[in-house]
Write a protein that binds this DNA or RNA. Structure first.
Length: 262
DNA sequence: ATGGTTGCCCAGCAA
């Protein structure tokens, strides 16, 4: 049975409950992975989600910051949660679906403004987090797994609006791109979005600070869908639903979708 | 080089 999955940095699930419901109604992914819920787990507004068929959830939360959740129409078991870099942040949750596929949902640290760990502790935390992800996947090779989330790195030149201008901007620096490539190699992860859409500019995030985000189109592809080689070939239909960035009271991220015929 | 916006919750940090 094929299922469709979406990943979306929601930037407060409580403030944006209405547009989560709208996405569920209009796009109806079977599995919806959220990041930056900014809510304790017991304060996530579940009633409306359940009424639309999303009766299963695994989540990690904290007050005010971070927070990840997987909402699913498919039964799902809570399988683990990593605290990479030992930050004490709610940045990872995983669920094993009844079809045997494990979903890892990550919110990688953004890394602050300056791409230099000697003067910016947050950048060091981001690199440490990526290093620990790499070690984790080397220690335990994932199988029949999908990794999604806001990885806060746009790896390719065509994942950003201007490669040269962003080489020293956190999210597109060579050291981050290399660290992300090491994570990907450690788990043999296939970049499903770029396997489906190999050519051309593709973004999933546009800053709130750009007044005319759609026309200016100074975006970055920070949100990713990866899969292990045993199921990556079953993926299709990848897309960024860009319109969502223009909905009322939007998140600064648009959701990324893929379908897996497992 | 700076400031541009938003969310948390009411100051200032994080993104």
């Amino acid at each position: 049975m094929p299922f469709t999955l979406a990943t979306w940095n929601i930037n407060s699930v409580r403030l944006r409950e209405e547009i989560v419901l709208r996405l569920m109604r209009e796009q109806a992914p079977d599995v919806l992975c959220l990041q930056e819920c900014k809510s304790p787990v017991d304060k996530i507004p579940l009633e409306g989600f359940q009424a639309l068929g999303y009766t299963h959830m695994v989540a990690r939360g904290q007050k005010g910051y971070n927070g990840v959740a997987i909402l699913s129409k498919i039964p799902m078991e809570d399988v683990s949660g990593y605290d990479y870099a030992e930050l004490g942040h709610a940045r990872h949750v995983a669920g094993k679906l009844a079809n045997g596929v494990t979903i890892h949902n990550f919110y990688v640290p953004a890394g602050g403004d300056k791409p230099d760990r000697t003067i910016n502790e947050k950048f060091g935390q981001k690199l440490d987090y990526l290093r620990d992800m790499q070690a984790g996947f080397l220690a335990e090779k994932p199988e029949r797994a999908i990794l999604v989330g806001d990885l806060n790195i746009a790896p390719r030149e065509d994942d950003v609006w201007d490669h040269k201008k962003l080489l020293k901007v956190v999210s597109h620096t060579p050291i981050e791109v290399e660290a992300l490539a090491a994570v990907q190699a450690a788990g043999d992860w296939v970049d499903v979005t770029r396997a489906d859409i190999p050519e051309g500019k593709l973004y999933s995030w546009w800053s709130y600070r750009s007044p005319d985000w759609d026309t200016a189109d100074k975006g970055r592809r920070l949100d990713h869908v990866w899969a292990t080689p045993d199921i990556a070939g079953l993926a299709s239909g990848s897309r960024v639903v860009r319109d969502v960035r223009g909905w009322e009271k939007p998140s600064d991220h648009a959701p990324v979708f893929a379908t897996f015929d497992v």
